[in-house]
Design a protein around this nucleic acid. Sequence first.
RNA 1: UCCUUCUUAGCUCAGCUGGUCAGAGCACAUGACUGUUAAUCAUGGGGUCCUUGGUUCAAGCCCAAGAGAAGGAGCCA
Length: 484
Amino acid sequence: MKRTKIAHLLQSGAVNTTVNVRGWVRTKRGSKGVAFIQLNDGSTIHDIQIVVNLETLGEECVKNAHTGACLSVIGTLIASQGSGQSVEVQATEVVVLGEANPEEYPMQPKAHSMEFLRENAHFRPRTKTFSTVLRLRHGLAFAIHKFFHDKGFYYLHSPIITGSDAEGAGEMFRVTTLDAKNPPLNENKEVDFSQDFFGKATNLTVSGQLEGEIGAMAMGDIYTFGPTFRAENSNTARHLAEFWMIEPEMAFYELEDNMELAQEFIQYVIRFALENYADDLKFLDERLAKEESQKKAEERSGMGLIEKLRFVVDNDFKRLSYTEAIEVLKNSNHHKKGKFQYNDIKWGMDLQSEHERYLVEKEYKQPVILFNYPKNIKSFYMKQNVNEEVGKETVRAMDILFPGIGEMIGGSQREESYEKLLKVITDKQMPMESLWWYLDLRKFGTAPHSGFGLGFERLIMFVTGMSNIRDVIPFPRTPKSAEF
RNA sequence: UCCUUCUUAGCUCAGCUGGUCAGAGCACAUGACUGUUAAUCAUGGGGUCCUUGGUUCAAGCCCAAGAGAAGGAGCCA
């Protein structure tokens, strides 16, 4: 008999039909004559209740239906006599496809700590919270493709292995087939990468942006969406060594167009989640409310998860130039009372996360777009603003800051002038030879263009309300941790 | 990488000033119960107190080193 997914079963409500459901046991309970099994197959957050009449079917058939076991159940979908659910399956046949020895199976029908679940990442998707996160992760990925596709953007597959070491976004993972114990050396006693697989030193990509610009300078609007890798030894709830990034790159976009697109994009995908994953979000909303109620009053965010998402969808993000932001910080009571750890606020400094958090969480209480940053603290490829006083040069960069997350998006208008870009590269003593093709884009048919990068996991964190980035990716990669 | 904290039963944790301190709840097993919703009730099994070394008459508790984890910082997305 053909299997019906639980999501479909609950939606159709076709009572008095015979169905076959298959899934994993959440809990089993019951008395002498009847057993109740909560079965879940991942298709929805909701379980289906299986009712087993032990007198007619015998106790043996559910003896091994412990938490975690996989079952195939044939039965009749009926209106439930109980109050916890509207329909249930009155079983006529229960087959245990895969047992789960309760003495050894680590998952239990109770709340586990997120740490424990990370250590059991192979069973983690069987929990309510994590399967909900995974459904939303899928939904958001789909929404991202839909948003860009509907706008006429092309999905460009930037390389995972890169020979370019000039992206400057962070420490890189070396990719090599050379013998780690005994690598070939050149005259200078350095590793001779000319003998390596690619004939040169290669790494895992830290960003697809530079390749994205190649796409934009021919296809107009493109986006990349793939894994990126940073070998930074950062141990925080907001960083991963392997994470997914979305990087659109658009020809003929100025910084303002870039900011507009970024806001529209975030609002679109969040609206998509609200419209298509209401049940999952409701569960996360309640979960977060429970968590919040245990916090001290001053640490509470004051808004529920769904409320927060609606707010972001319905309101324009606050736009603020870096220079204005410095003024706001300087004039804040927080600063005057010396409450910032780095309280010496002056133009030209890189904003610390406490400053960003103050702006987003205390001053404006909404997403904030900061733009026009000092040239000296930003990347080489960003376009410089014109007519500025000496020592106060800025570039057309923008960051979008989110409450609880920090930087969600970093982007800029790119320098399209060959001469200006060449000068910056020379001044910064960057390796010209690996950037020849990047410079060629300016030499031949250059155009104003812009783009940004969005950390997919940080978006998922915001939408799900999860507080640790390791809990929004199936297989987190962090320093000292690559199990599974 | 730095700072702080943590590591006791399968899980979540308690364990006071170093001296009946090997404990609870849940889970699990067995039994009871005619429809349960984290079912309930009774009984039971279950421990390298992270590791190593030290102090002490005596260490789960104090000290040192190591391992792992969490939170914060830096870096960033």
